[in-house]
Nucleic acid binder design. Structure first.
Lengths: 147, 147
DNA sequence: TTACGTGCAAAGTCTTTGCAACCAT
DNA sequence: ATGGTTGCAAAGACTTTGCACGTAA
């Protein structure tokens, strides 16, 4: 399976060096996660199937679990039901989930630096920043409700 | 259904004033949430059924949803699967979930004050503190791995 | 008395698993 | 060639829903 030469292939070696194989399905899942950002397994499956219709949902789950364990993608648990996946290279940001409209925003790492420092200091707890989600209400919904 | 007089009954009125009824099932669920702390619906059901065996799991779910919507309990979405419920009066703390051993610790509100301030400031985002969960590794697991 | 709440059972959603065929290495 | 991967289908975990009976108010 040939591809455009300029695509990032560093993860290929990550797989192979650990004894895993590089398959079209895995490429497609990783590309889907990269392009969708905060997507559920079903959304990722839909995107993958735009290119390769035969890919089964169970393969999506297995692949996401693998990529997650390798640290290539990360997931967060949002409101109810499905987790959402994003590239681990985008880690270091906080997810801001609006409980009114469901919108997902992101905050920069600096905003949470005091938090991670305080938790390390006082609890000896090492924060997994790529897995951090904050719930609340976004600016839009706050102004709407106040009206 | 009479009970010991010294039990906290403020939530009774919370229900009645909104047109909901006070039932033994709802009392038991609230008591279970209070005594268990971070319990899943199934765990709550098990506790409730120690007292009243007939209570159905669907009643547990419906009651938790109700109490949650009334702000009497709150839930967080932990690793995979079931959410965990706790009393809303214990809100204002952060859950620290260890991804290695699964232990749930709590951090005081002061630790997150800088975070909530920064997010409000820079994103107009109002943090729901009772719903905040931080993933990472606890002190014990860190020292084990480092060894 | 009235209509909200519950138990029961069935269905729904999301995810995992066993197994034979398949294919990356 | 050969063992990791996939598709398929079935099972599993978790949650919701419809309906008739029960019960708080």
């Amino acid at each position: 399976m040939e591809q455009a030469p300029q695509r990032d292939r560093s993860w290929d070696e990550e797989l192979r060096s650990r004894g895993y194989r590089v398959t079209p399905q895995r490429q497609l899942v990783l590309e889907a996660v990269a392009s969708l950002n905060h997507a559920t397994p079903e959304e990722i499956a839909a995107r993958v199937q735009q290119t390769a219709k035969g890919v089964n949902i169970s393969t999506i789950y297995r692949t996401l679990e693998l990529l997650d364990s390798l640290g290539l993608v990360a997931h967060t648990h949002l409101n109810h039901g499905a987790p959402t996946y994003h590239l681990a290279t985008e880690a270091g940001h906080v997810h801001l989930v609006c409980q009114d409209c469901g919108k997902i925003d992101q905050a920069s790492p600096e905003a949470i630096a005091p938090l991670t420092a305080a938790l390390d200091d006082r609890h000896g707890f090492e924060v997994n920043v790529s897995h951090l989600t904050v719930f609340g209400r976004c600016q839009d919904c706050r102004s709407k409700t106040r009206a």
